[in-house]
Design a protein around this nucleic acid. Sequence first.
DNA 1: TGACAAGTACGAAGTCTTTCGTATTTTGCA
DNA 2: TGCAAAATACGAAAGACTTCGTACTTGTCA
Lengths: 126, 126
Amino acid sequence: MIRPTNAELAILGVLWQRGPSTVRDVHEALRAARGGVVGYTTVLKLLQIMTEKKLVKRDTRSRTHVYAAAVSEATTRDHLLSDLVDRAFGGSSLALVLQALSTTRATPAELEQIRRLLDERKGDSR
Amino acid sequence: MIRPTNAELAILGVLWQRGPSTVRDVHEALRAARGGVVGYTTVLKLLQIMTEKKLVKRDTRSRTHVYAAAVSEATTRDHLLSDLVDRAFGGSSLALVLQALSTTRATPAELEQIRRLLDERKGDSR
DNA sequence: TGACAAGTACGAAGTCTTTCGTATTTTGCA
DNA sequence: TGCAAAATACGAAAGACTTCGTACTTGTCA
């Protein structure tokens, strides 16, 4: 159900990082982050749409509305991952993990981090 | 560059599985696989578009054209993964792997498979 | 108080995806 | 030979995304 589009993800990224923000905040963050050639009213419109979709919450108490993410980053990532698993990996999360592992560039420390996670789950079929 | 849409992925899935196929083949495979309520000419049109996009190759020697995937499954998966990494994981493949691992349901055997892959890459910063 | 700045709301246009209907072409065979 | 079946080509429509212009509202301060 939670499947933010591209532009929506960019905005959620800002909200996750900055916390509750005004349109202006988001607009400037986007402009700073990337070559964000996106107009102010575009961001406003997107936030309005995202409010309808319940992706963000809007506080209208002050004239300048304040928006906050209504979905967590982890949950959203989960949804996007399982979406991709369904669409391109025949429903197999394992296939995705293996593919990601086999092409990702990881430092030894990172490999170790993965190994630790595996250890925690040893014999755990969750 | 290789970013098949949803419908395109479904078709590529058939081509990867069946090998070179006619429109009719693909159409029937889709209909069989899912509740594939998709018309014959829809599949045809998609294959034509995919030919333009170089996602498939078309052999027109016989009247009934034969289509074959022009992109490999592994490469396509890579592209989709790195796309998702960029869009939703701040560019960190590691973050994606960790997230996928922490929510995926894996049997001990599967965990072992992952561990073996890690072993192969030990000290390998590729 | 009245004009300007800063906000929000809204509609509309452009692009992409997906879908299919219709027209046209080709082939096989009765 | 000529018709029906099977194919391909093409255009167009509907929906989703993204973008922004324009209109309207509200608050500030000279």
